[in-house]
Design a protein around this nucleic acid. Structure first.
Length: 812
RNA sequence: GCCCGGGUGGCGAAAUCGGCAGACGCAAGGGACUUAAAAUCCCUUUUUCCGCAAGGAGAGUGUGGGUUCAAGUCCCACCCCGGGCACCA
């Protein structure tokens, strides 16, 4: 009789249907089990699921299933943010309303994910552009406003002409928009809303200590660089003619006696005042040049303003220049140039003939009167008045003291981090809940009037101004303070706001009294495990840390960090070796793969091809092998369900040993590292052995082996696991069973295989009982016939024995 | 330029604490079954040399050194690839 075929379509349809009940996946809020909280990063609903998403989800899903089987209380939400901008652009392109488009897309993605068999609570999904989510975004905004953490200012902002909106610094990649890598970002001056993430710069930096070990070092380093704290001094140089102050920032105030000019950024407000017409033209040229791509390649340019400034320490008058290498957005936008002790200043001053004056010598060297290059290390300060002879560090602190005493400067800390600009000139996003009143100014909408909802009928063009500006019904409002006519804010919030706190809302998605129940969050947070792509290292992960700290200060939560452990999984790359993306057209559609091979096979394949932290190029050639493996599993179980037989003791022993070794191996893989590729390889080895021993297996051995197979397979290939489990007459679901335990004794080999080496070269091997003494092993090795040719006529110098493993004989 | 990763067969990879390099899978080749094909099963597959054969000897984890009885793994120098940061004062 032929073996029953593994019909993945029939099996998967059947179990898709039976596993639809959300109650199966829901965590028990009263559970005393050790908690384990897995959250998945969300794909944008602007496209369909692709194999990259399938891999990301499969990693978390396998882990969640295993944790359930170990008795953990798993909250394993997968849901979606309805991200504004992509949704809006896609909706415009298809001539549909963003809301309609978003919801239908969410439904489609939900269907696909259900088809893939991801175990998740199907009630939990959140579309963050829905009214209830607006409400709490806006509520947070008002809280921030009240605390001075939200403010509005006119600022030079990054503007993507393609998106027709503003971008945060974090969203600019190599001078281009993160979504349009060929569109250079422009600078525009606009009134914008900001959130004061800089108020938490120090804490965001300091608390990274807590994350050490739990978060990848790479991510922490990226955040550290991004925050970019540097300690130094701010010093005022007064203009010789007008007395107006130029404040400079330096980390090397100890070199200030060597300052030979002051350089302003071309955008510096004072620059336009000091410059003549020609100078202003030069400044504009510098600004334009910088807007182009490769900043590092731009040659130094400068222009003398014709004015002089006074070094407050020694009264020297130094020329004031503008320079294209001085950045307005860092420090104070002005520097003192110390060519003798800074590479960039050296470059600049050499080029423009500004004098060079050395004031620092190496601790055990002379002052270099005529340096060929800048000496940038700390040393001993010379020619610096009362500070001469001091070590650099010492000089810095004494100079700061003097600056403070005399009122011309102070010690200061500068950050590279800028406040988070959250204004977007788009339709599809959370409206910023304020009103502009001609009499009262900016007036927040009272909490009781939230949420402010988007008007439904707008003219979406994707061009120029936000469509909300022209939506009269929306824009014309009444001032909540004076009752007079006023204008509603037309900016909407950056959608990174939505993703900054969605994982809290997941715990309590239907709460209409508060963003979430604080007690529930206190019980679950910080989440034990967060999984996401490294692409979010400084966007989402920094924002959500900031949000967490703000919410803590609002008294909503008690944790200071959102996630104790972060795992950054690798991407699935297209055939061309670059990340899958719709614009490149290299995405692989899971729908096709599922039809062809089945959902289980697809999941198994993406987990098997590479360990999860590694990028994985999509090479379909290997998928068939995984399908064949599942076929083999199915066939083996099905044809041995009712088979009788006395069996062979040797076969039984070998098969059971392999079984227990496999359980041990997979358990260790889940516990120590998530290398599912080796777990799956172990399962394949088990099946290979079972096939080899099949003839000799007794009924008793089969009764032990068969039920273990779906349990071990469950985290990786859930549909087949359920099917086999049911075929054995058991009640599911598999992921709610106990994880099988292994017996160390049964897993043990009969004898230790000991490798024999002579001078480190493999010359033979022997089998001995476990725990044989070093003397026994040494004796066995020295008398082994295979080793004699290499030992005869030689003198044994040393014998190294590693019990149960190896003997190495050193001869001369 | 600076800071992280990484470099192992034809390919994806494994080797988890310094102890048999290449598990597992793909692809390839050969065989069995079959009228035939598919499916399935079995064998070979890092490489060079010796041998009719069983078998044996050598080389080999980007390159060059080093430590060690023993190195893919540790140390030093360099090359290449990927990522992040980059006139950050």
């Amino acid at each position: 009789m032929p073996d029953p075929a593994y019909d993945h379509k029939q099996i998967e349809l059947k179990w898709q249907d039976r596993l639809r009940d959300p109650a199966l996946y829901r965590a028990d809020p009263d559970s005393s089990a050790p908690k384990y909280y897995v959250v998945e990063m969300l794909p944008y609903p602007s496209g369909r699921l692709h194999m990259g998403h399938v891999r990301n989800y499969s990693i978390g899903d396998a882990l969640a299933r295993y944790m359930w089987m170990r008795g953990y209380n798993v909250q394993h939400p997968m849901g979606w943010d309805a991200f504004g901008l992509p949704a809006e652009n896609a909706a415009i392109a298809r001539g549909r309303h963003p809301r309609e488009w978003t919801l239908s897309n969410l439904a489609e993605m939900k269907r696909q994910m259900h088809r893939m068999g991801f175990a998740y609570d199907w009630d939990l999904e959140i579309a963050t552009c829905e009214p209830e989510y607006y409400r709490w975004n806006q509520w947070f905004f008002l809280k921030m406003l009240a605390r001075g953490l939200a403010y509005r200012k006119k600022a030079l902002v990054n503007w993507c002409p393609q998106c027709a909106t503003v971008l945060a610094n974090e969203q600019v990649v190599e001078g281009c928009c993160w979504r349009h890598e060929n569109t250079p970002v422009e600078q525009r001056a606009l009134e914008q809303w900001f959130w004061k993430i800089t108020a938490y710069a120090d804490e965001l930096l300091r608390d990274m200590q807590q994350l050490e070990g739990g978060w990848p070092e790479r991510v922490l380093t990226m955040q550290r660089n991004w925050i970019g704290r540097s300690e130094g001094s701010e010093i005022d140089f007064a203009l010789a003619d007008s007395g107006e102050q130029i404040r400079v920032f330096t980390t090397r105030v100890d070199t200030i006696y060597g300052a030979t000019c002051v350089i302003l950024a071309p955008e510096h407000p004072l620059a336009s005042k000091l410059l003549n017409e020609e100078g202003r033209a030069r400044a504009k040229h510098m600004i334009d040049g910088r807007a182009q791509k490769d900043r590092g390649d731009i040659e130094k340019d400068g222009y003398f303003t014709g004015h002089y400034a006074i070094n407050p320490y020694n009264g020297d008058q130094v020329p004031v220049w503008i320079g294209n290498f001085v950045l307005m957005e860092y420090g104070t936008g002005a520097i003192m140039a110390v060519p003798a002790h800074d590479d960039r200043d050296f470059d600049f001053c050499k080029t423009f003939g500004v004098p060079i004056r050395s004031v620092i010598r190496p601790v055990d060297g002379e002052l270099d009167e005529n340096p060929k290059a800048a000496f940038t290390e700390d040393g001993i300060v010379e020619r610096s008045g009362e500070f001469s002879g001091l070590a650099s560090a010492d000089a810095r602190s004494r100079m700061n003291q003097r600056a403070e005493r005399e009122g011309f400067g102070k010690a200061a800390i500068t950050y590279r981090l800028k406040d988070w600009g959250i204004s977007r000139q788009r339709y599809w996003g959370t409206p910023i809940p304020v009103i502009h009143c001609p009499d009262c100014g900016v007036v927040p909408i009272p909490e009781k009037d939230l949420p402010v909802l988007l008007p439904h009928d707008v003219n979406l063009t994707g061009q120029g101004q936000s469509p909300l500006v022209n939506a009269a019904e929306f824009i014309n409002a009444t001032c909540p303070k004076c009752g007079g006519p006023a204008r509603r804010e037309s900016d909407t919030m950056d959608t990174f706001v939505d993703s900054s706190w969605y994982f809290y809302r997941y715990l309590d998605p239907h709460n209409d009294q508060a963003p979430f129940d604080s007690a529930l969050v206190a019980k679950w947070f910080p989440m034990d495990q967060y999984i996401g792509g490294v692409t979010h290292a400084i966007l989402h992960l920094l924002y959500s840390r900031f949000f967490t700290k703000v919410m803590r200060d609002l008294g909503l939560i008690v944790n200071g960090e959102p996630a104790a452990n972060l795992f950054t999984q690798g991407m699935v790359l297209g055939h061309d070796g670059t990340a899958m993306s719709k614009s490149k057209g290299n995405i692989v559609d899971p729908e096709e793969m599922i039809d062809k091979y089945g959902a289980d096979t697809c999941r198994l394949f993406v987990l098997f091809a590479a360990p999860p932290e590694k990028d994985m190029p999509w090479i379909e050639a290997g998928v068939g092998g995984l399908r064949r493996f599942l076929d083999r599993v199915h066939r083996f179980v099905m044809r041995n369900l009712d088979r009788g037989g006395a069996g062979d003791a040797g076969s039984d022993r070998r098969a059971l040993r392999k079984l227990h070794q496999t359980i041990r191996k997979i358990t260790e893989d889940f516990t120590n590292r998530w290398h599912f590729n080796t777990s799956i390889a172990a399962l394949m080895e088990l099946m290979n052995d079972l096939y080899a021993e099949e003839e000799g297996l007794s009924r008793a051995a089969l009764d032990q082996i068969l039920p273990s197979i779906p349990l071990l397979l469950g985290p990786f290939a859930p549909y087949l696991a359920e099917e086999l489990w049911e075929a054995m007459g058991r009640k599911g679901p598999v992921f709610r069973q106990s994880w099988p335990s292994y017996d160390e004794e049964l897993a043990k080999e009969d004898a230790a295989e000991v490798v024999l080496q002579v001078n480190g070269k493999l010359r033979g091997r022997i089998f001995v009982r476990f725990g044989a003494s070093n003397e026994e092993l040494e004796k066995a090795a020295l008398s082994d016939p295979k080793l004699q040719p290499f030992l005869s006529g030689k003198q044994v110098v040393k014998v190294i024995v590693v019990p149960d493993k190896l003997v190495n004989i050193v001869v001369r």
